[in-house]
């Protein structure tokens, strides 16, 4: 199982989601990804997309500098 970090800081909707999806297409089932985003809308939208398409949310947190760390696992 591998982990990758996708830095989408500075990008706006739907940029972070699209970067996440294009990376997830290259991942294996069980791999995890951490998306870095400064877009608050994406912090809400990405978990919604993950839930809708059947992947797994690991966790979401915002650091002291305002960056969201959204961790997901490819489930299918």
């Amino acid at each position: 199982m591998s982990e990758r970090v996708v830095d989408a800081r500075g990008s706006f909707c739907p940029g972070p989601l699209m970067e996440l999806i294009s990376n997830m297409k290259m991942m294996q089932v069980g791999d995890t990804l951490e998306l870095l985003s400064t877009d608050a809308g994406s912090a809400a939208d990405v978990p919604e997309w993950i839930k809708k398409v059947g992947h797994e949310m690991v966790d979401t947190e915002q650091d002291g500098e305002g960056t969201w760390h959204i961790r997901v696992r490819k489930a299918k």
Partner: peptide
């Protein structure tokens, strides 16, 4: 840094 519309259309097709 808003993704340009043409790039988003490309992603709609590709992804």
């Amino acid at each position: 840094k808003v993704p340009p519309f043409y790039q988003i259309f490309e992603q709609a097709v590709e992804l």
